[in-house]
Amino acid sequence: MIPAPFEYERATSVAHALELMAQGGEDARLLAGGHSLLPLMRLRLARPTLLVDIGGLDDLKYVSGNGDAIEIGALTTHHEIADSHELGEACPLLTTTAAQIGDPQVRHRGTIGGSVAHADPASDLPTALLAMDAEFVIEAVGGSRSVAAADFFEGPFMSALGDGEILTSIRVPVSGASGVYRKFNRRAQDWAIVGVAALIGTDGGAISSAAIGLTNMGGTPLRAEAVEASLVGVSGADEVAAAAAQVADIGMPPGDEQASAEYRLHLASVLIRRAVGDVLT
């Protein structure tokens, strides 16, 4: 299947890309790694009139840290994140999540910025970034702004990113907490039926801080706030399981051909228990 025809421009800088996007109007789309957009174009579910290729902007491909926070360029690939020693030390939740996306070929092409901007509720990285309280840096013709992950995702494939704006980097606070991402799918390389990102701080064997992100449990990545509150102070497996069961507090998740709403809640509870258990053992 071949995409419908489109115009193609190669951006030479972020400013040039913004200019091209403004000229292209509302049916212009940015192309980074293309691993969300091209499959949709091939199915003709997306028919942009102009593709602005930012894949050659090497200055959007970096990882830089200052001790308190790490900034990741939007064009950094999943493979580069999974393979980054610096990120593995500072944000283990991010590296372990990136390593579980798709397959090696997908990770070589897919980018963190593309994954966030696409805002697919079944994607893995947005959930991890929500659990880490990441911020997204967005450039527009008039200047730049920063949006917290909690405010960014608005619905399935909908985000705070406006027409003509470019997500250029992701800032992640360095917390010192341990991170685990667990997802359930029936076949290798499938999207997560449910995914759980756990960022857990411990003090003397007990949980001192907990952030739990959920993948594919709603129209956006979600935080399991009731679970987070119940986990603090907990150290035993039974108490972790009881806290994990509080995931039902988010309401009913969607049901589809992969899993009913009830089964999703069950999976989320089990995955939370296992993810937190990984940290405590």
Partner: peptide, 22 residues
Amino acid sequence: TSSCGACTVLLNGQSVKSCTAL
């Protein structure tokens, strides 16, 4: 559909699915 990998080639030394790259 980017699933089966029969189209895998190396692009600058890294494996990619050539049906999902322009």
